[in-house]
Design a protein around this nucleic acid. Sequence first.
DNA 1: TTGCGTGCAAAGGTTTTGCATGGCA
DNA 2: TGCCATGCAAAACCTTTGCACGCAA
Lengths: 139, 139
Amino acid sequence: MQKSAYRTKQQELIFSYLEETKGSHFTAEDIRVYFERRQITLGIATIYRQLEKLVTEGQVQKYYIDEHSASCFEYTGEKVSYDAEKHFHLKCQNCGKLFHVECEELAEIAEHLKCEHGFELNPFRTVFYGICKDCTQVK
Amino acid sequence: MQKSAYRTKQQELIFSYLEETKGSHFTAEDIRVYFERRQITLGIATIYRQLEKLVTEGQVQKYYIDEHSASCFEYTGEKVSYDAEKHFHLKCQNCGKLFHVECEELAEIAEHLKCEHGFELNPFRTVFYGICKDCTQVK
DNA sequence: TTGCGTGCAAAGGTTTTGCATGGCA
DNA sequence: TGCCATGCAAAACCTTTGCACGCAA
């Protein structure tokens, strides 16, 4: 697990953002705006490069939600074994909200896919699409 | 379910392509190239506009695979109830292949999400990410 | 001093949009 | 004739890349 050769101010700024928003979602642009409001300029390219590195290290997860919205990232900290993970994402196609779900039963899917289909599921990367509770009731 | 007001030659061409490739995936660009090879020019904008209409009608499904590859479409024909569907997609993060899976057990996920989480899953739109059989063995 | 990290601007690729033209009814 | 659909080009969008400069070690 190779860390950056140099420790820069920008890296620490981004890391402080990650710590503060742990458990929630953000885009590269979110980070840029966050610091812009504090009179700090962070190049968007730098943010993407740092995030890419953290994704490779497994500390940050990346989601492709829609084709025309920016990629969502999530800071999860140290790398976790997929098997142990019960953390899933539900995306509502109607209101656009992204939900977190912790659920044993969903973890069984991973087990099933592995045994029956030889497919090792990556729950960090997988997003379930559909209509959420609120939007179902309205319709 | 509002159909096109006018029936055009381009619509029929696209429909003929859909019938021929039923059950497999394609991109907007695939359609354009397919007809270009037959000396037929179809504007890419026209293809996107027709596909968008068919997606709205539920005859064509759209997948967001990666952020930097083109969207995948699939022709499924007349609208189907989600509940009855056992059709799932697995995307390998390593080799990039997209697999179709027909599986009862996976249909139970939809049931679970509905009952326990009030979330109506759209299996057409949902893609499972992970590592496929072949790539697991190589590693 | 060495060379990695940064920031700017430009490029990259897919999808959408504006607008004049063509074709369906 | 009236109006929708088409096709071209330009725009829009997010992300990556090239390059010169700055900064860490």
